[in-house]
Design a protein around this nucleic acid. Structure first.
Lengths: 417, 417
DNA sequence: AGACTTTGTAAACCCCCTTTCCTAACCCCT
DNA sequence: AGGGGTTAGGAAAGGGGGTTTACAAAGTCT
């Protein structure tokens, strides 16, 4: 009986998230505005705001004129109240960003990994170095770091903190969080980049306030973060979203997963490069060993009207459109978000072609209901999402405390009346 | 802000469903057993059982020895307490079944529709006739019919009771429920066969108690009912699950939806027939104008070891496996259920081939987590599911009443102490 | 008959959200 | 400056839900 058990506490947690999200999105804001935006009653909002104030995640920052009555109290994120760290472990690099509570980037550290460096201890060393670096750079005291979110590709056991399978390095059941805990003293949270991007969009991006959304992740690997019923869909073993290994062309290109014709082999960065090479083996756009440079060149080529670049992007969009149409037909989402660096680099031209291709392949009703947009998140969405996991973790661990405010006639510890 | 708003009432509704489901599944049963099965406390189960007793959906049926203490009271579905009707409107026929509250079929009526009969009024007339017939057959008084669930293919607006788009007959925005209401006096509920099958599996079949399940519907049309997070996933415009119009072969066979290479064109009954015709145009298995007869013949052929039949089923399973692998990778469900008449007819041989094909196409972790089974539901799952919609409807409309039991010192209407 | 067991109800309690009431704080007008 | 009007926000009451605890009811065993 693995059925889902819901309790009234879940409602509280969801509301707490919702209120904090809203405050982060629109920082200073009043209780009135929060109540209107969240649909909660004023009393509930006031209680939740009180909680967040107690936790020092937000502060009171002044007042705002009301239409002739008592002024509205304003609250804002307490940017100095803590810091969150997001770690994006990718195939060739480790990127770490340190955020304040408004999720602004305060410091960043990149570490490149040489092709041979694939042992867990080596990766862990890079992560530890980068985390140390951002903490030093930002000059925050260690005590103020509320948590560290870590994103690692592949299948992940988040409760156990284990990287069950990472295709890049052929890792199997690596106890990553235990290894990291030896170097990093802050609370750690593990998940994969797909879900990190999805959570980033859910909190701060195009999926905010949407019930059903799909966050399509276009990078070296490809996947889809699924937001269903207002929350992240993880599946029964936390591996939902492997859209990249969904069949797009039966008996098509061989994929490193062993299957043929996976979406990833066509719309992942290596797939796009392959297509370019097939089309124009000597194109100056092609940088054989550098995905980033090649995609950058393609983007510039499209802007300049280069016919080869245009064709590559159009063909990619065609594949992408067919794949996204499947998601639209199957899940009927409110919004489809194109995220990650390939989407960010190719930008509007890709989006326009994708929209057309999706329209050709999907059914009218679900198509009409689905918006397709580029991610509005300006920074690295994986780091942001990883940091968001840390924020969620901090929020839920805080909430265990039986913090009570304002018990009337009882001696309490000193706190200004 | 279309985000999902949850209230504590939803918890109650879910628990009420869960308890009733359990009683229907295992009738007679004790409160103890119910508490153990649902994970609820004894007190909550007792309250809910009390509610269901008040509603006369269940009755007390005696006692069961306990290990040396007070005997356990047993409750069972009150089969005579009401009736539910499920209506399955398909392309060529209308099937209506009347169920008792244990969801046993008490009466059935089939109406065939001639190819030309596609006007809404004609279909409505058939439905009205069949509903009248089952009520008469079963000899139940009209007052005891708690509701009628109606399944119609295509896109459906269930709140408004409108068939937004039915591909078979090119219906657009037909106010089906209003038309039916002129002939049928019972509460009506509309949805489509995909979701009917999914709900049937969720209540009575292989998806019971599962958090995430996919109910693959193999009939003339093809689709997937999605059970996510313990409940039916409808999508933002109630059209989720259109897996049949997901691309399996890029630029493949033309589908009636206008797209190419849809899953439905390969694994729907007409697709299977087409494949048989291509393989062996003169096969005796082929009944050109009769899908049911052809699929029946195929099943017999497989049982007899006919090489053509074997190849057709194997090829179909190959397509099906690739498509289901996509669902497994994308959604990471606990169970995949093969439902509807094509699956029921081809049975185990198909299942075995499908399992193999899925294993070839999907990633290990999600594959390991996913069971693939045939629907255990012996009757028409669409009728059953439609009736279940009626049951859910009855249960939620009942629950509005402020029924209170056992207010201690207050004059109440006569009821045995 | 009396002791022990087990069931099931009733009461008390905790959590969550909302509604209602009331005070605080500001404006404007006299 | 001092009331009246208006809006904000806190406190208390209330309603829904689930669980724990206490106790009566209904058996078995000695």
């Amino acid at each position: 009986m693995a059925s889902v058990k819901r309790t009234s506490r879940d409602i509280r947690t969801a509301n707490r998230y919702e209120v904090l999200r809203q405050i982060i999105a629109e920082s200073p804001t009043s209780r009135q505005e929060l109540a209107a935006a969240t649909g909660l009653s004023l009393a509930t909002v006031a209680t939740l705001v009180g909680e967040l104030l107690d936790l020092r995640l937000i502060t009171e920052v002044g007042f705002e004129d009301s239409a002739g009555g008592r002024p509205r109290g304003l609250v804002a994120v307490n940017t100095t109240g803590g810091a969150l760290i997001g770690v994006d472990i990718a195939e060739t690099y480790v990127r770490v960003e340190l955020f304040d509570l408004a999720l602004n980037v305060l410091a960043r550290a990149d570490e490149n990994m040489r092709p041979g460096e694939s042992r867990p201890e080596q990766v862990v060393a890079h992560v530890a170095a980068a985390v140390g670096s951002v903490v030093t750079q930002a000059g925050v005291e260690g005590a103020r770091v509320l948590g560290v979110g870590v994103s690692v590709p592949g299948q992940v056991d988040r409760e156990g903190g284990v990287s069950e399978y990472a295709p890049n390095w052929d890792w199997h059941d690596v106890p990553l969080l235990d290894l990291l805990a030896e170097h990093i003293a802050y609370p750690l949270h593990l998940d994969n980049p797909l879900r990190a991007c999805a959570v980033a969009e859910l909190w701060f991006g195009a999926a905010r306030g949407r019930g059903d959304a799909v966050v399509v992740n276009l990078g070296t690997g490809v996947g889809a973060g699924l937001v269903l019923g207002g929350g992240l869909h993880r599946g029964v073993s936390n591996s939902a979203g492997e859209w990249g290994h969904t069949t797009l062309v039966l008996d098509g290109r061989l994929c490193h997963c062993g299957n043929h014709g996976c979406v990833e082999t066509y719309v992942g960065a290596p797939g796009i490069m392959l297509h370019l090479r097939e089309l124009a083996p000597r194109s100056t756009l092609l940088h054989p060993e550098d995905q980033t440079a090649t995609i950058d060149a393609l983007a510039r080529g499209v802007a300049a009207g280069d016919p080869i670049a245009l064709k590559v992007v159009r063909d990619t969009a065609r594949y992408l459109g067919a794949g996204i149409a499947d998601l639209v037909n199957l899940l009927n989402p409110e919004v489809v978000v194109l995220s990650s660096w390939v989407a960010a680099t190719l930008g509007e031209p890709l989006l326009a072609e994708v929209r057309e291709a999706v329209a050709r392949h999907s059914l009218r009703r679900p198509l009409d209901a689905a918006e397709i947009v580029l991610s509005p998140i300006p920074t690295d969405p994986v780091c942001l999402g990883a940091a968001t996991f840390a924020l969620e973790g901090a929020l839920s661990s805080f909430s265990q405390r039986p913090t009570r405010r304002g018990t009337p006639a009882r001696s309490r510890t000193a706190s200004a009346s």
